[in-house]
Write a protein that binds this DNA or RNA. Structure first.
Length: 104
DNA sequence: ACGGTGACGCTCA
DNA sequence: TTGAGCGCCACCG
């Protein structure tokens, strides 16, 4: 369906299951635009589908929570509630990272 | 149409 | 390992 880059980001983000997280980088790769990691953050920042799109489940590729419109602290708190254990503001990607199916 | 900004990523020192 | 710089793409004014 014709939609903007951001729209696809929201769609993928909404597919992230509870207790799991994804990275800006992973989303960009899924959209076939590996270098659009920054644009991902930009899209989620505006995120018009707030409760519908769990943008707090999207973190940086290095495991850091990254940023959040309501505050990084809030983001971490939400993730912890979801069952994600965070250490030093970092998340275990090997344990919680959710990988999307990369279309080819 | 143009330029600046931004919830990032990677390389180099 | 930590810190700083450059490059990336999409959106807003």
């Amino acid at each position: 369906m014709k939609s903007t880059f951001s729209q696809r980001v929201y769609d993928l983000t909404a597919k992230i299951p509870v207790g799991r997280v994804s990275t800006y980088r992973a989303l960009a790769r899924t959209l076939k635009i590996p270098g659009a990691s920054r644009a991902i953050g930009n899209a989620l920042h505006k995120n018009p589908y707030a409760p519908q799109v769990p943008c707090h489940r999207v973190i940086k590729s290095n495991g850091e929570v990254g940023g959040f419109a309501s505050g990084t602290k809030k983001k971490i708190a939400l993730l912890k509630k979801e069952g994600v254990i965070i250490r030093q503001g970092k998340i275990d990607l090997a344990t919680y990272l959710y990988e999307f199916k990369i279309k080819k």
